[in-house]
Nucleic acid binder design. Structure first.
Lengths: 141, 141
DNA sequence: TATAGTTGTAATCATTTTGATTACAACTAT
DNA sequence: ATAGTTGTAATCAAAATGATTACAACTATA
């Protein structure tokens, strides 16, 4: 099982807004054609990013605009903004048998290890800012 | 989206086999009642673990038995044995628009960052052996 | 050797999640 | 007023998951 594409779609969306926003009006239609998904998907993404205080979106007249500085936006911020993973990354089987010594203690043994792995992933996401991505993108464009 | 419970089920299964295997015949029914899932789910898990060379399973007479030493089984080995994640952990939207400077370069900018995060997760899983879990379990039992 | 207890595996099913899509009210610049 | 948007609810199809049924193949042992 994989982490939903909402995450990479949101990163793509933000890069578009921050890189192309001065030149074009960033409507959901415009962004959707860059990402190649349905405009409604982008509107939902924009909603999440707006709720997280990363961008602002104008209803009616249209267009998304930067709010936070690119130095203050990490991949982790985007990851949490779009709710890729609610709580624990690892699914656990429900109701292990408490009559069994293994079933009774499986959570005690495993939970912290899995949490550590998830934290390692998230820390790595925290180490990358939108500035980092934009620097790299500007070289390629 | 989360990582399938096949993983934690497999860890649970192995702990049962290595801890209780001397005392009981570890049939799929027995393990299933500890994990609290359908026995067929356990048989599939056992198949994967057997294919990975971690355990042996006797068809007919029944029962799963250890093959590898607990020092040589990491959480990562189990994670790969049951194929929680095929290839990339992060889903990517298909066909970003190559006419757009962002769409054209989004993979170049993002792929390695996401790979780094996934590697951090997997390295953490590599650092935990079944021995570690069993030590902890023995204290609790 | 017949039997009882297993494993291995295919086939189905319901549930959940995802992303696509339609539809439309509400909003705003012009 | 209008045209172009956003916000959001409602549906839909597809994919993935785990549950379950079914049964052939296998093996210890009585």
């Amino acid at each position: 099982m994989k982490i939903t594409s909402r995450f990479t779609v949101a990163v793509h969306t933000l890069l578009a807004i921050y890189v192309l926003g001065k030149e074009y009006k960033m409507t959901s239609d415009f962004i959707a054609s860059s990402v190649n998904v349905n405009p409604v998907v982008i509107r939902r993404t924009l909603s999440s990013l707006k709720a997280a205080g990363i961008i602002d979106v104008k209803a009616g007249s249209g267009g998304a605009m930067p709010v936070k500085d690119t130095d203050d936006i990490t991949l982790y911020d985007i990851y949490t903004a779009v709710d890729c993973v609610e709580g624990n990354l690892f699914n656990f089987h429900e109701n292990p048998n408490p009559e069994c010594p293994v079933g009774k203690n499986i959570h005690a043994v495993l939970d912290s290890r899995l949490a550590d792995a998830q934290t390692a992933l998230e820390n790595e996401l925290k180490s990358v800012t939108l500035t980092d991505l934009m620097k790299q993108l500007n070289i390629l464009m």
